[in-house]
Each structure stands twice: as C-alpha cells, then as structure tokens.
Simulated scan of single mutants.
Amino acid sequence: MEVGSADFPNARVAMGSPLAKSLYGIDGVARIFFGSDFITVTKSEEVSWDILKPEIFAAIMDFYSSGQPLFLDSKSGAPTDTAINEDDDETVAMIKELLETRIRPAVQDDGGDIEYCGFDPETGVVKLKMQGACSGCPSSSLTLKSGIENMLMHYVPEVKGVEQELDPEEDETAELANNME
C-alpha cells in the first residue's frame, strides 16, 4: 500500500480486496492485515505454519502476477481516523497528530496498526483499536498501557488514560474467557 493500512478481521470484510479474498480462501487463515510494505496473516490454532506458508506465498505471488488492484473500490487505505477535522478541539488534534506521527509508525514496525476511536473529555480517556498482528496479541494491552498511554499522557495533559476498543468478535471471546475464570 502506498499509504495507510487495511485490516480484514473476517472474510466478509475482505470482499473489497482480491488479495485478501484469495488469502481467506485458504483453510486456517483467521485474519489479514495490509501495511505499507508488509502483509500480516494470522492463522487459527488448528493449522500449522508448515502447511499454510506455501499456500499463502502462492496466493500472494498469483495476485501480484495477475495485475489486479489491491482494492476493488480504489480506496487508497489512507488513515481517516487521524485526519484532523475542523470541528476537532486542540486536545483531539494533538492526540491525532501524536498517533499519526509517533505512535502509528512504531506499531506498524511490529506488523500492526492502531485506529483512533475517540476521546472523552470528561474522563480523559482515549479509545483506540489495535489492528493486524497487534490485534489479539497478548502484549498489545501492555503496549497500549505502558507505551501509548504514557506518551499521550506526557504530551497531552488532558489525557488521563487509554482504553482498547475491541471488535464484536473479540469482545465475545474476551467475555467468554472472563466467564470461564
């Protein structure tokens, strides 16, 4: 991708990208994420990488030799979540700028991305969603709390904390795990 990233948490969302759709056609693929110069594929636990890697590699090579566009709707994948809008106050603009310039590049280095979901000025809480390899990663909550939260609180005094937004599927899984404890 020339700019931005794209997260495909399920096959339904992947229909807008011929490559993502092709990768979801492989048994055992659980999630797909496109970064600026990488693809992150998350597998289900039942399948071995030894079986998946050749199929994934073949699907990627077939896609690039086909000449198809990465997206059918020609969206660039540019992040819109951190675009500063006219109605954003100073605090939100500072949060978005930090996310775009300092935090997003660091998270993308680890094969993921981060999406800004909102800021509550009353509680001082920033809502973020982890994507790609960072989504569902056990260390993502540590990254969110120690790295991202500390940086935002340091540069933006109005920020009192950071919370992770989960996809509905991840929310159900987390709730199920909590009920089993």
Results as ranks from 00 to 15, higher is better:
32 I>A: 03
100 E>Q: 15
23 L>A: 09
150 N>Q: 09
124 G>N: 00
1 M>V: 08
114 I>K: 02
6 A>H: 11
146 S>W: 13
79 P>S: 12
37 D>Q: 03
112 G>R: 00
120 D>S: 04
77 G>H: 02
89 D>H: 03
80 T>A: 14
180 M>I: 13
40 T>P: 05
155 Y>M: 08
135 S>H: 10
42 T>S: 10
160 K>I: 00
153 M>L: 05
11 A>T: 04
122 E>D: 14
166 L>S: 09
132 G>D: 05
108 Q>C: 11
35 G>K: 01
106 A>R: 09
54 P>Q: 08
112 G>E: 00
84 I>M: 09
108 Q>F: 03
35 G>M: 04
119 F>N: 01
159 V>P: 03
144 L>G: 07
123 T>L: 02
104 R>P: 00
179 N>R: 15
105 P>D: 02
155 Y>D: 07
160 K>H: 11
69 P>A: 12
131 Q>P: 07
41 V>I: 13
155 Y>P: 05
124 G>D: 05
95 I>N: 01
88 D>N: 09
155 Y>C: 04
108 Q>A: 13
35 G>P: 04
65 S>W: 07
134 C>Y: 02
114 I>G: 06
172 E>P: 05
162 V>W: 04
58 A>L: 11
77 G>S: 08
69 P>V: 06
75 K>Y: 12
5 S>C: 09
109 D>M: 13
34 F>L: 04
86 E>K: 12
60 I>V: 15
166 L>Y: 09
31 R>L: 00
47 V>R: 11
160 K>Q: 15
154 H>D: 10
80 T>K: 12
88 D>Y: 03
108 Q>N: 14
117 C>D: 10
121 P>N: 00
107 V>K: 00
2 E>R: 13
152 L>I: 09
10 N>D: 15
76 S>T: 15
176 L>V: 11
12 R>W: 07
150 N>K: 14
4 G>V: 05
105 P>A: 03
133 A>V: 00
119 F>E: 06
19 L>K: 00
61 M>V: 14
108 Q>W: 02
114 I>A: 02
85 N>Q: 15
52 L>D: 08
27 D>L: 12
172 E>L: 15
35 G>L: 07
6 A>G: 11
170 E>N: 05
158 E>D: 14
132 G>Q: 04
86 E>P: 03
52 L>A: 10
115 E>I: 12
114 I>L: 12
51 I>Q: 14
169 E>T: 10
90 E>A: 11
167 D>K: 08
